[in-house]
Amino acid sequence: MRRTAITLADGRELIYFDERADADRSFPDTRELPPPPPTSQLRLDPLVDEWVAVAAHRQKRTFLPPSDKCPLCPSTPDFASEIPAPDYDVVVFENQFPSFSDRVSPDEITELTEQVPVRPGVGRCEVVCFTSDHHSAFGQLPAARVRTVIDALADRTAAMSALPGVEQVFPFENRGVEIGVTLHHPHGQIYAYPMVPARTQAMLRAAARHANRTGGRILYADVLAAEQKAQTRIVAANEHWTAYVPAAARWPFEVQLAPHRQVPDIPALSDAERDAFAPLYLDVLHRFDALFDKPMPYISAWHQAVVGAGRELGYLHLQLFSIRRAADKLKYLAGSESAMGVFINDIVPERAAQMLRDAI
């Protein structure tokens, strides 16, 4: 893989990850762009001790443009996009409308009330374009391209984990207008959080309790071993990875893909583990689409170890889930889920696993 970094017209970084050594990356960004916006505010909710990001500039982000004005497609003589080159394999660049960045406003306030401190949302947000083909999807990529994506995510995870103040790096993909995507082009994002998100905090607390009870055993490793033994909720597996429906799945269709070896993050995966991920993940994505014979909306979320305290408890895994519960029905987060965080699943996880096994 060849890595080439350039600077866009407004100073943001863009990196080409090429599968060919002779790719021409000399094309400049010819646009006239305003400077990037200042970073978001982080405001502490004292009632639950959680940070909330306020990023008003994101209201102006591009929303479902026509295909000939897609900012993630390669540039053409008639339209200059975010990617100056006329073609690419995988591209990563700083988000033009970031939730977190290092561009701190000089008049940043530090407190709203005695109970609500405020601090800059210092971090980084990047966009990952999986292919130059606007009409493709991650599930349609060849295995070799998935490997390129994994290598790009490893590169960016390592770089973003080293940034000052970053506490966790979170790569993810949203697919489908039902999920809320604002660009149809196949792409994902990477957030470098300046705090440990609430879900990760809960996972760390559970992992620490388990380690204390069991003399240092890793919770996720024990959960994975139990699923492999039970087999009931296994969807697919190979030498290095297992894909299974969690026994307490929150979503109608939810699968976790985990390596058989405990690693903290994507950079720690071996070449063999990176190669083995592609066919298994593509298989699961195909099963998702085959369930109702149409593209499945989903969120694909990489759970990586935190950068600092508690890193030894982390166990890399990918969580893939959909809000579709039937061919013509979506699961909306209503009162119990949205207000109280108590999920009520419409489909028994064992049944969901069986449906996914039978889908292909």
Results as ranks from 00 to 15, higher is better:
residue 1 M to I: 02
residue 2 R to P: 02
residue 5 A to Y: 00
residue 6 I to L: 08
residue 9 A to T: 04
residue 9 A to F: 07
residue 13 E to H: 06
residue 15 I to A: 03
residue 15 I to R: 08
residue 18 D to T: 12
residue 21 A to R: 13
residue 22 D to M: 08
residue 24 D to C: 06
residue 28 P to A: 09
residue 30 T to C: 08
residue 33 L to A: 06
residue 33 L to C: 04
residue 38 P to I: 00
residue 41 Q to H: 01
residue 44 L to C: 02
residue 45 D to T: 12
residue 47 L to F: 15
residue 48 V to I: 15
residue 51 W to R: 01
residue 51 W to S: 01
residue 52 V to R: 13
residue 52 V to N: 15
residue 52 V to E: 14
residue 56 A to Q: 15
residue 56 A to R: 15
residue 59 Q to Y: 11
residue 60 K to D: 06
residue 63 F to S: 10
residue 65 P to R: 07
residue 65 P to I: 10
residue 71 P to H: 13
residue 72 L to R: 02
residue 72 L to H: 05
residue 73 C to P: 13
residue 76 T to G: 13
residue 79 F to D: 07
residue 83 I to H: 07
residue 86 P to V: 08
residue 87 D to I: 03
residue 88 Y to T: 00
residue 96 Q to C: 13
residue 97 F to I: 06
residue 99 S to Y: 13
residue 102 D to V: 13
residue 102 D to P: 11
residue 106 P to R: 11
residue 114 E to D: 14
residue 118 V to W: 04
residue 120 P to N: 06
residue 124 R to F: 03
residue 131 T to K: 00
residue 132 S to M: 13
residue 135 H to G: 13
residue 138 F to Y: 15
residue 139 G to S: 01
residue 148 T to C: 00
residue 148 T to L: 03
residue 148 T to Q: 02
residue 149 V to Q: 00
residue 151 D to N: 02
residue 154 A to S: 08
residue 158 A to E: 11
residue 164 P to D: 07
residue 165 G to D: 05
residue 170 F to T: 03
residue 171 P to M: 04
residue 176 G to Y: 08
residue 177 V to T: 15
residue 177 V to A: 15
residue 179 I to M: 02
residue 181 V to C: 08
residue 182 T to Q: 07
residue 182 T to H: 10
residue 185 H to G: 00
residue 186 P to M: 08
residue 188 G to T: 01
residue 189 Q to H: 06
residue 192 A to I: 06
residue 193 Y to F: 12
residue 193 Y to E: 02
residue 197 P to Q: 01
residue 199 R to A: 14
residue 199 R to K: 06
residue 200 T to D: 09
residue 202 A to R: 10
residue 205 R to P: 03
residue 206 A to N: 10
residue 207 A to P: 13
residue 208 A to S: 10
residue 210 H to E: 05
residue 212 N to Y: 02
residue 213 R to S: 04
residue 216 G to L: 11
residue 217 R to I: 08
residue 218 I to D: 14
residue 220 Y to A: 11
residue 220 Y to S: 14
residue 220 Y to K: 15
residue 223 V to C: 01
residue 224 L to K: 02
residue 228 Q to T: 11
residue 229 K to G: 11
residue 231 Q to S: 12
residue 233 R to F: 06
residue 236 A to M: 03
residue 238 N to I: 07
residue 239 E to N: 14
residue 245 V to A: 09
residue 248 A to E: 06
residue 249 A to Y: 14
residue 249 A to F: 05
residue 251 W to M: 09
residue 255 V to R: 00
residue 256 Q to V: 09
residue 257 L to I: 08
residue 258 A to Y: 03
residue 261 R to M: 10
residue 262 Q to P: 14
residue 266 I to D: 06
residue 274 R to S: 05
residue 276 A to M: 02
residue 279 P to H: 04
residue 282 L to A: 05
residue 287 R to W: 04
residue 294 K to P: 05
residue 297 P to S: 09
residue 297 P to C: 02
residue 301 A to Q: 12
residue 305 A to D: 04
residue 311 R to I: 02
residue 313 L to T: 10
residue 319 Q to E: 12
residue 320 L to V: 04
residue 324 R to V: 00
residue 325 R to L: 05
residue 325 R to H: 03
residue 325 R to N: 10
residue 326 A to F: 02
residue 327 A to W: 03
residue 329 K to H: 15
residue 331 K to E: 12
residue 333 L to G: 07
residue 333 L to W: 04
residue 334 A to S: 12
residue 336 S to R: 02
residue 339 A to R: 15
residue 341 G to Y: 00
residue 342 V to N: 08
residue 346 D to H: 09
residue 347 I to Y: 01
residue 350 E to Q: 13
